[in-house]
């Protein structure tokens, strides 16, 4: 991976394990200034561990993670320029909104005037200006999430790490958060965001890195990912549920066909990447007609991010506990 002056985050050959368990296996990616990079992966794929390394809470076993030119083994050098929005709402419930802002502002080394200016501005932006004297424990879920954001943005970081920003939020709040992230990006911030929501990654992120079992299996813009998955040469096939043996036989047959480049299948869904779409569709259509309802559905379209995820990891999002939220 070539270094670039535009890159504010560069991760190379990153390994991390906890005892015998290997969590990160040679992670490599980068994030440019002013873009949002999504780290998409199921639970246990290593997203949080990767994020913890990038904010300096953990140290990798090997490899490098460089943020704004500083190796994150010595994260103290860049903490003033980076921010972290944790998945959970981490602040003091018994302090008021403003007391939390003032406290963490001080920990970031801000002066009283800076805290007043930045805090008031952020509260206004997220719609919490009226809640300064409210105890943080008394805020609603959405309000807590916004406060969570504010506390990470008080010091105007250049790079923001966000962990699952919209988990458990209502659709309105989710959209608000997306727009907020987009506004931050337009303001020049670089955002690295973990998520297991496909649509969120698709809507918010400029580029996406798909993690699976501690490794990035695909990285790039959505268009690039689609191309990597097969693009227009991808056929999606659904088999009748409850026939795993039939699907396995079909997969075996398809893999032997010369015009088939790759087959990915799981739980009744098969993706066929082919060099000859016509031949493949004709073959599958024959099976559809003659196979006794083996094939339930067949579709030749550009893959969605879910499809890409499935192709990359071999598992459907539902299988790993994701909740699909309509856009």
């Amino acid at each position: 991976m070539a270094a670039s002056r535009e890159n504010v985050v560069e991760v190379s050959g990153l390994f991390k394990g906890f005892g015998p368990l290997k969590v990160l296996n040679g992670i490599e990616f980068f994030a440019r200034e002013g873009e949002i990079v999504g780290l998409l992966g199921p639970s246990g794929s290593g997203k949080t561990t990767l994020l913890n390394i990038l904010v300096g809470l953990e140290k990798p076993d090997s490899g490098t993670a460089v943020v704004l030119g500083a190796d994150m083994r010595d994260a103290a050098r860049v903490r003033r320029k980076t921010g972290f929005v944790p998945q959970n709402d981490l602040f003091y419930d018994d302090l008021t909104t403003w007391e939390n802002i003032a406290y963490f502002g001080r920990l970031y080394g801000l002066s009283s005037s800076q805290i007043r200016e930045n805090g008031a501005g952020l509260l206004e932006r997220v719609g919490l200006a009226e809640k300064t004297r409210t105890r943080a424990g008394e805020l609603s879920g959405g309000q807590r999430k916004r406060l969570n954001f504010i506390l990470s943005l008080l010091h105007s970081p250049r790079v923001l790490f966000v962990d699952e920003p919209t988990v458990g939020l209502d659709p309105v709040t989710r959209r608000f958060i997306w727009k907020f992230l987009d506004d931050l990006r337009k303001g020049g911030a670089t955002i690295l965001m973990t998520t297991h929501y496909m649509n969120e990654a698709e809507i918010v992120c400029d580029r996406i890195a798909i993690l699976d079992k501690g490794a990035i299996v695909m990285f790039g813009t959505f268009e690039e990912l689609k191309r990597q998955a097969g693009g227009k040469n991808l056929i999606k096939v659904r088999t009748r549920p409850g026939n795993p043996e039939v699907m396995r036989d079909l997969v075996a047959i398809m893999e032997d066909l010369e015009f088939v480049d790759a087959v990915t299948a799981s739980e009744g869904t098969i993706f066929v990447r082919t060099s000859d779409v016509d031949a493949a569709t004709e073959y599958l259509y024959r099976i559809l007609k003659e196979g006794g309802e083996i094939i339930h559905l067949m579709d030749v379209t550009e893959p969605t991010l879910e499809d890409v995820f499935f192709i990359a990891t071999g598992r459907k999002p539902e299988q790993i506990g994701d909740v699909r939220v309509p856009a």
């Binding site: 300096g56 809470l57 903490r79 972290f84 944790p86 602040f91 963490f104 920990l107 970031y108 080394g109």
Partner: peptide, 14 residues
């Protein structure tokens, strides 16, 4: 346990 200590640690304050 609540995680808020982590937020203290990620600030420039040592």
């Amino acid at each position: 346990a609540s995680g808020v200590f982590m937020r203290n640690l990620i600030t420039p304050t040592g």
